[in-house]
Design a protein around this nucleic acid. Structure first.
Lengths: 189, 189
DNA sequence: CCAGTGATGGGACTTGGTCTCATCGACCGT
DNA sequence: ACGGTCGATGAGACCAAGTCCCATCACTGG
């Protein structure tokens, strides 16, 4: 027996997602979330710095991207390294069993500006992480910025497809296709 | 004689920038801002939907970009249209007389995550506007997304330079150079 | 059996943000 | 002048997010 019910943050996140779906983000109180998880406001803010962050817990994405870019074969170009990172993402985070969850979560995010705002910031921070990782590979800064930006764009497009389609195609392949498309377009401008 | 002191929103914005510089964004209260402007909290929220927005008032940027993209010569490619939009930006918003203001404002933004978050959202919304404007020119959606993204990147880089350098080079030329650089990189991937 | 420790609860407090109603100052027509 | 109107502002109650500090609980180890 555990002292208390285990995984307080997980319960809070689950309760939050449920409530946001039922009543919308704005009409849901932190106290209500905590109560549904059998906890209190105090505990909520112990685990999440603010109300939005309860939907962005997954957390270690940046580290994963950085590592994947660092461990790409030395002869790989910037966009190849980025593709490597997107693959890692598909293998670790955007797996088939999390697709339904991602779908629900994204629907909630899209419905609220405050949440889209947080998402935008996360995206920028991740892009910055990729730029730094590329920089560490010796990629010129300008090139790194362009590559990371295009990678983020491909990510975004692949994610939309992965969530939206009924096909069972994984995130990895979708991302590779998206990146190839982006690359082809970028090559002519 | 005006009935009241004129330009309440302008006074609020100026007061806010001053106070944010002096004490930081988080240590400044909306009431303090309003008082320095000779107004009250009520009036502040009458003009700005929230505390952050007082630094994002300039407002009509989206319309300017959209119009500039629409009015680019028909034979111009997507990135040329984007360049046209960045030029318009330099002529209308990022003029020499606003450089010092932009510098101050940006320093405040960079110092606070909440503000960077709002900035990120604005950037995304503007990028979306550009994508739609390119779409209306008949540019394929994927191409439009890439072009708009690269345009935003060039914008960002040019803005940094425009703010950071002591040279008197205008935003327009800087943006064109940045876009050319980005374009060259994108062409090889 | 008792002291220590880590997770939780409780509640006061500040601030952002909303809402409603009162007030004020100028302009208008008579 | 005079009262009415209208738009801009003020006042204050109210709610929820977020911060802080301290109490409490449940188990652990000696």
């Amino acid at each position: 027996m555990a002292r208390w019910q285990p995984d307080a943050p997980g319960r809070l996140a689950a309760a939050a997602l449920d409530l946001f779906e039922e009543h919308g983000y704005e009409n849901t109180t932190v106290i209500e979330i905590a109560e549904r998880a059998g906890l209190t406001k105090s505990t909520f803010f112990r685990y999440f710095p603010d109300k939005r962050e309860v939907l962005f817990g997954g957390g270690t994405v940046a580290g994963l991207l950085v590592e994947a870019i660092a461990s790409a074969p030395p002869e790989a170009g910037p966009l190849d390294a980025v593709a490597h990172a997107l693959d890692a993402l598909g293998r670790t985070f955007f797996t088939a069993d999390r697709r339904e969850f991602s779908r629900r979560r994204q629907a909630v995010l899209n419905a609220n500006t405050e949440l889209r705002e947080r998402e935008a910031l996360k995206r920028i921070d991740l892009t910055t992480s990729m730029i730094e990782a590329l920089d560490r590979r010796g990629v010129p800064v300008l090139t790194a910025r362009v590559a990371a930006q295009l990678g983020t764009l491909a990510w975004e497009m692949a994610y939309d497809q992965w969530i939206g389609t009924d096909s069972t195609e994984g995130f990895g392949p979708l991302a590779r296709k998206a990146l190839a498309g982006v690359r082809a377009v970028g090559a002519m401008g």
